[in-house]
Amino acid sequence: MNTTMQRKLVKGAAAAVIAAGIAMAAPAIAHHSFALYNMEQTLTFTGVVTRVNPDANHLQIFFAPMNDERKNVQRGEDGKPLVWAVEMTGSAQAAADGISVGTFPPGTIFTVGMHPLRSGEKAGARVNPGAIYKCPEKKPPAAGKHCDSVDGSVTIGGGQLPVAAPTAR
């Protein structure tokens, strides 16, 4: 192989590496489609955290939605709390926003907007951009209200509280 050919090969390889880098930068923003979720529908929940799953790819917060009076959580026929899940970015990015096992311990009252799964499972993708509000400890909002109305609540992420759009448009 002569030198010119070698140079061409090196240039080609470098171009391939750069192209791969650019291709990988885009998936960092959205590494898969949101076809699983009904993006037309937005559900806004105020609930009590039962568990955080700090998954590397998509952190999940499991929670029991509160009833309209905000005095208790919604319960099934067996009297047990109904549990929903909201998932978002990976645990490291979520931690940078202030969402982690440590900052959302069981019992935390918070408000979040989500696009629910099309499958009907009680889970959805966090509305992003959209704020998550954390109520002060053991201080739920007044009936029909969310954590953004409670004095001393903490805002996580930018933007407004997602407004519920319960039916698909």
Partner: peptide
């Protein structure tokens, strides 16, 4: 493993969570 994590809705047994206010 990476594609089978799904959802585990169970409330942990040892979690003493206050659901009433």
């Amino acid at each position: 493993i990476g594609f089978t994590k799904g959802y585990d809705f169970a409330v942990p047994d040892d979690a003493e969570i206050n659901f009433q206010f």
